[in-house]
C-alpha cells in the first residue's frame, strides 16, 4: 500500500528560474501592502491585544502600564453596564437588519432587471443614498424625524413585540422600524451588486426552464436564487461590516469616549478591551452568515457530482452483474461438462 502511495505522489519538480523570477516580481508588487499590513494591522493588533490586559495611564513621562489581568473586562461590567447591553442589542439589530437589507435589495434588483422604462432613473434614485450616508448627516436627519415613515406607530409595534420577546430584542426591532428609511438607505451598493450579477445570468437557462413549463416563481427559486447565492454572501458580509463601522452605531462612540476619558479605570487598556469584545462579536456574526450562506460548491455542481457518482455506481453494478453472469455461465458450462462426463449414460 505504502509503495503505491509513493508512486502516486507527484515527483518533486525543482522550481525553475522563470518561476522564481515571477515569484520575486509578485513579492515586489505586493511589498507596499505587506509593509502596510505589518505597520498598521499586525503590530497594532498585537499591541492592542497586550493593552487589553493592562491599565494604562498617560503621564508626561510616557505611558505607564499596570498589569491587571482581566480587570478591564470586569471594569466594563462595573463602569459601563450599558456596553454589554448595547452589544446584545447590536447583535439582534444586525441579525435583523442584514436579512431585511438583503431581501429588499434583491427585490429591487429583480424588479429593475425586468423590462422597465427609465431603469437608469430608478437606479439613480436607489444608489443616491450611498453618496449621502455619513454619520453626522444621518444623525441630523434622524434627529429631525426625517428617517421615519410618517404614518408608522413605532410605540405600538414595540409594545406588541415586548410581550413575546426579551426587551433587548423588542428594542432593536423598534429601533429598526423607527429608522426604516435609514435601513433601506444602506442597501444602495447591494442593489447594484445584485443587479449586475442578475444581468450576467445566462438567459438560456430561463429559456430552457420556460420550455419545460417552469413558471416565473419556479424560475426564481430554482435558477435566480442558487446563482445569486455567492452574491448574497458577499452582500451579507458587506452589510455587516458597513453597519459595524457606521457612526450611527453607539458602540464605536462609546469606545472612543472611553479611550479619551480621564478617569482612573478607563483609558487605552479599557478601550482596547471594549474594542476586542466588539471585534469578536463582529467576527462571530460574519462567521454565522458565512456558515449559513456559503457552501463551497453551488447546488448545480453538487447535484452534477451526485449524479455522476450514481452513474458510476450503476456502471459498477452493471459490470459486476456481467462478470457474475460470465462466472455463472462458466460454472454452468463446467458443471454441464462435468455432468456430461459423469452422468454415466454411456454415450461414449
Amino acid at each position: 500500500m505504502s509503495k503505491k502511495e509513493k508512486k502516486q505522489k507527484k515527483p518533486k519538480i525543482k522550481v525553475g528560474k522563470l518561476e522564481k523570477r515571477e515569484a520575486r516580481a509578485g513579492y515586489f508588487f505586493t511589498l507596499p501592502w505587506v509593509i502596510g499590513v505589518i505597520a498598521f494591522l499586525l503590530v497594532p493588533l498585537a499591541q492592542s491585544f497586550k493593552f487589553m490586559w493592562y491599565n494604562i495611564r498617560i503621564t508626561p513621562m510616557g505611558m505607564i502600564y499596570n498589569y491587571i489581568g482581566i480587570g478591564n473586562f470586569t471594569n466594563i461590567w462595573h463602569e459601563d453596564p450599558e456596553f454589554p447591553q448595547q452589544l446584545v442589542t447590536y447583535i439582534w439589530q444586525t441579525c435583523l437588519e442584514v436579512p431585511i437589507i438583503i431581501v429588499f435589495a434583491l427585490m429591487i434588483a429583480i424588479m429593475l432587471n425586468g423590462k422597465i422604462k427609465m431603469r437608469a432613473f430608478f437606479r439613480l434614485i436607489f444608489f443616491l443614498p450611498v453618496i449621502i450616508v455619513s454619520g453626522p448627516v444621518m444623525n441630523m436627519l434622524v434627529s429631525e424625524g426625517a428617517a421615519t415613515i410618517p404614518s408608522m406607530n413605532v410605540q405600538s409595534i414595540v409594545a406588541a413585540f415586548d410581550v413575546f420577546f426579551p426587551t433587548s430584542v423588542a428594542e432593536s426591532i423598534g429601533e429598526m422600524f423607527s429608522n426604516m428609511i435609514m435601513t433601506l438607505w444602506y442597501s444602495g451598493v447591494q442593489i447594484l451588486i445584485f443587479l449586475s450579477a442578475l444581468q450576467k445570468v445566462d438567459p438560456a437557462l430561463y429559456e430552457a426552464a420556460k420550455i419545460d413549463g417552469g413558471s416565473g416563481w419556479e424560475c426564481f427559486w430554482k435558477i435566480t436564487l442558487p446563482t445569486m447565492k455567492p452574491m448574497i454572501l458577499l452582500n451579507a458580509v458587506y452589510t455587516v461590516i458597513f453597519l459595524s463601522g457606521n457612526e450611527q452605531n453607539t458602540l464605536i462612540t462609546m469606545i472612543e469616549s472611553a479611550m479619551f476619558s480621564g478617569t482612573k479605570e478607563k483609558g487605552y487598556g479599557y478601550a482596547s478591551a471594549m474594542a476586542w469584545l466588539y471585534a469578536i462579536v463582529i467576527t462571530l456574526i460574519v462567521g454565522l452568515f458565512a456558515l449559513m450562506l456559503g457552501s463551497k460548491k453551488d447546488v448545480y455542481d453538487r447535484k452534477a457530482k451526485k449524479f455522476k457518482k450514481l452513474q458510476k455506481k450503476e456502471e459498477r453494478m452493471k459490470r459486476r452483474v456481467i462478470r457474475r453472469g460470465e462466472r455463472h455461465a462458466k460454472k454452468v458450462a463446467r458443471n454441464s461438462r462435468r455432468y456430461t462426463t459423469y452422468d454415466g449414460s454411456g454415450d461414449y
Binding site: 494591522l41 497594532p44 461590516i241 478601550a271 474594542a275 466588539y278 471585534a279
Partner: peptide, 9 residues
C-alpha cells in the same frame, strides 16, 4: 476586522 481594534495603538 473593525477599525476600532487597531485604532488605539
Amino acid at each position: 476586522l473593525p477599525d476600532q481594534v487597531t485604532m488605539i495603538p
